[in-house]
Simulated assay, not measured.
Amino acid sequence: MKRPTIADIAREAGVSKGAVSYALNGRPGVSEATRERILAIADRRGFRASAAARALAGAPAKVVGLALQRPPSTLGVEPFFMELISGVEAELSTRSYALLLRMVPDGDAAAEIDVYRQWWVEGRVDGVLLCDVRADDPRVPAVEEIGLPTVIVGPPAGGGSASVWSDDAVSVAEALEHLAGLGHRRVARVAGIAGLAHTAARTRAFAEACPRLPVTSANTIWTDYTGEAGARATRDLLGGHPRPTAIVYDNDIMAIAGLATARELGLRVPAELSIVAWDDSPVCGLVHPPLTALTRDIAAYGAHAARLLLAVIGGEQVGSRLDEPARLVARGSTAPPVS
């Protein structure tokens, strides 16, 4: 979707570009009938006059958008997004850009697409970061159709949009090799949202690595990343037969919840259950025992995404960037199994 210009509005209304500017800004210089005609055209094209004035004049918004299909409470409890946003903000501030954040209902891709369309037509943003990409994600072709400069934060999703991503298969293999080296043969995984592209990549890597090591029992339970879901999945796994001697969690919040659940069930960590967390955070080092975790510089990851998007906005031809994979930091939550 091509963003309208002042010339487009003027041409349709049969007036000069100056008359359009006067009408949109509520200034004298045009008749009331002409003003109403111009505002009607602006309204039909889907933008508000106050926001349109800047866009029609061709000035950049100097703003990058980020819409997330998650409840607002997520930002208060999940360190990943706060660290990602801090990295994005740090990079944008060096170029005098701001970040516009919008939360949309979980699972409502159409609502998110509507946000992008409104932002672009109204000239509110110069580009967007697209997170939590799924297989056959409708948002990817939508932003390309709109013409909105976009960088995907996650695995490439086809089309022409660039992406910043890390090879999670490397990290999965490193975690499983660590556990297998300690003697674990029954390893379970508490995964995130099944439909997300990075979750699917981790699932494939987990299934491929286990037989090679060998890990003889490898169950996976999918969740929504919350601590409550992580606790439920942990109870289900520890109540099953055979019981896993190690669990890998797809984020730190679920791993901490899993640690608390194991204690409630009377299991000693790491003697009777080893735990590995994705997305290492300061909290992982504060609990007892401190959690073995797959760690990476998430703030730097966000900064790389912002830098790539600014290059796209600037008209550069860029490709996808493979970032550093998460690496294992062994702490007190992993040890050889007692049986």
Rank of each mutant, 00 (worst) to 15 (best):
V338T: 14
T292Q: 06
S171A: 15
A169Y: 02
P289N: 07
E83W: 05
T199Y: 00
V30P: 12
A175V: 06
R35H: 12
G230W: 02
R37W: 00
A180D: 05
N25Y: 06
P244D: 00
S21P: 09
A299Y: 01
A218K: 06
R11A: 15
P337Q: 09
R235K: 09
G65P: 05
V312N: 02
A306T: 06
I152W: 06
V140Q: 06
P337V: 09
A201P: 02
F206C: 00
D8A: 13
A305N: 07
V338N: 04
E174P: 03
D280N: 14
V318K: 02
S93I: 04
L265D: 01
A53R: 12
D167Q: 07
A162P: 01
L265T: 02
V269G: 06
G266V: 03
P28M: 11
P211E: 01
G160L: 04
A42K: 10
I247Q: 02
E208T: 05
G123K: 08
E32I: 01
L238D: 03
R11P: 00
I313F: 03
T226W: 03
A135M: 03
L286A: 15
A255H: 09
L196S: 04
W119M: 05
G147N: 13
P214G: 15
P336W: 06
H304Q: 15
V269T: 11
D108L: 07
A157I: 06
T220Y: 01
L99W: 01
A305G: 05
A40F: 01
T334S: 15
E208W: 00
T245F: 00
S73M: 07
E112V: 11
W119H: 05
E177V: 11
V287M: 11
A326T: 10
T226M: 01
A23W: 12
R48D: 15
A23Y: 12
D43G: 14
G266Q: 03
E32P: 01
A49K: 15
Q118I: 00
L148P: 11
E264L: 05
A19T: 09
I146A: 07
P79A: 14
